[in-house]
Nucleic acid binder design. Structure first.
Lengths: 116, 116
DNA sequence: CCCAATCATAAGATGATACTTATGTATGCA
DNA sequence: TGCATACATAAGTATCATCTTATGATTGGG
């Protein structure tokens, strides 16, 4: 599950989300990331490299530009991982389910109330 | 989606996976993490704090120990996020689907062949 | 050919994260 | 009351990921 580490970076997550809509050239992805994050071209290229090396995208040369596309179901592992917990909160799980879903007075956290 | 960043850390991921099986005390979680990662008690406590502050777990005091449990469906966001792409690789998507699933000779990467 | 465009790589700086040791706080028990 | 257990917090350090600038490699076009 290095997918969590891979998608943990917001830039890479954006790239993946962008590619989900269809293939795009490195230049287009770079422009997008520069607008959203204000980073340089090499920075984006490095993120693309990580996505390549981990098998989440593939590339094809087209003239002088490189077209990126998502690999077939890069999220298979993630879906699998998530599936292991699905039945836990699907509501089907009787005792534990209701137990977990209770607001449970006196059980809440001590400090926080930040994001969520 | 700070969940990716949260679960990006293997220690926190282990804790969450552990808690999916049921509640556990800080001490038990600490022992687990120490065995698996060889880190100190404060290190684990800091990870627990992050999980607390981000709302993924709640705690309850029981004597001198603190019992941790997963919040109700901490993965709701993740499932939602993933759902947006589900139909893309479900095989239902005709053209793009087959296109993406092709081995596509001459399209593969240049360098890699690492993890995946 | 030569130059411009597109993208990748190298090397170094910087910053965020996660670790460490040391200490604080609360509870239970003798 | 005093000590031990369980856990949290503080402060400092270190490690690692990500950024930057500089440069290389490939391709197309005049």
């Amino acid at each position: 599950m290095d997918l969590f580490e891979t998608l943990g970076d917001p830039v890479r997550r954006s790239i993946v989300e962008e590619l989900a809509a269809g293939e795009q050239s490195a230049g287009e992805l770079t422009a997008m990331a520069q607008v959203r994050f204000g980073i340089s071209q090499p920075a984006v290229s490095q993120h693309l490299r990580i996505l390549r090396e981990r098998g989440y995208v593939t590339t094809r040369a087209e003239g002088t530009r490189r077209i990126y596309r998502l690999s077939a179901d890069p999220f298979a592992d993630l879906r699998l991982w998530l599936g292991r917990y699905d039945r836990l909160w699907s509501g089907a799980l009787d005792d534990l389910g209701t137990y977990l879903n209770r607001p449970d007075p006196g059980t809440t956290n001590d400090r926080e109330r930040d994001h969520v």
